[in-house]
Write a protein that binds this DNA or RNA. Structure first.
Lengths: 150, 150
DNA sequence: GTATATGCAAAGGGTTTGCACGGTT
DNA sequence: AACCGTGCAAACCCTTTGCATATAC
């Protein structure tokens, strides 16, 4: 998959700058990456890039449909490539691990909500809290609640 | 419902200060209230109360099980009384309205997640994005995305 | 060459923390 | 008297914004 970022940007009237392509690389490479993590990745190749640029680039990449973001937990949103099928994010409140599942697990649920409320839910856009298998088995956990994203 | 706040606080070794009872009142009265909104409510009766106190009080009230919070949208978390049955929060990305539904709408979904991932999901803890019935019908919407909580 | 992007630095919103005072027990 | 809780102010994190410079087209 991974569409040609430069081409997509041009098609929307944007310039394909090194920064934009690097940020897109980062989003492709890292999964569920926060702006901060993306910056760290980009810095390996281009140490001069600024965090504010990352924010602005992400906004552009999202507006042209190359990436999307999801709110997982309390911290920064995480960005991921927008091509593949939508998936849900599950964040463990114990260890902070994030797991994914194809979004179709939620269709029945979404239909029930639509039927009861007339509300068209987009379950994929927000992370879901809970405890992962490992932490369910383990006794005391690392982080009692929240914790940073990713 | 609405348990006796003072009694519960005492039972846990906390003092039942006016501030704590006022904050609890606010959470009972306002539904899905943010710390800022709670402060506004409390200020009507006690203008001297500080926002940091609201944060600290909410932490205490949550620790003794009187209130819980949920992350609805990007902004501040919202607090609600913890007595009644858990409910899910649906935030409309169009108008910002928040609707609720009993948490049992999600049990099938949660079971599916558990079966596939071993992950015990707590769907009630995070708000779910989507479009409400009104905004589905309406053409252009007020807020394109996010927007403040509640 | 020109409009767009970037880097930098400062500002802004939300939340947390240190500290001394005030109120309960 | 001892302690817990509060108000105040400062600090912190994350994100946005203004402005001058650099760059892709």
């Amino acid at each position: 998959m991974t569409p040609d970022g430069a081409e997509v940007l041009h098609r929307h009237g944007y310039r394909a700058t090194p920064q934009r392509l690097l940020v897109l690389d980062a989003v492709v490479e890292l999964r569920h990456a926060t702006p901060e993590q993306i910056l760290a990745y980009v810095h390996r190749r281009a140490p001069a890039v600024n965090l504010s640029t990352v924010y602005r680039v992400l906004e552009v990449l999202e507006s042209v449909g190359l990436v999307s973001h999801a709110h997982i937990g309390t911290g920064s949103p995480t960005y991921h490539v927008a091509d593949g099928p939508a998936h849900l994010h599950f964040r463990c409140t114990g260890c902070g691990r994030v797991q994914s599942l194809p979004a179709d697990v939620a269709v029945e649920f979404e239909e029930a909500v639509l039927a009861r409320l007339g509300f068209a839910a987009d379950v994929a856009h927000t992370g879901i809290y809970g405890r992962c298998a490992d932490c369910l088995a383990a006794p005391g956990a690392a982080t009692p609640d929240d914790g940073g994203p990713t």
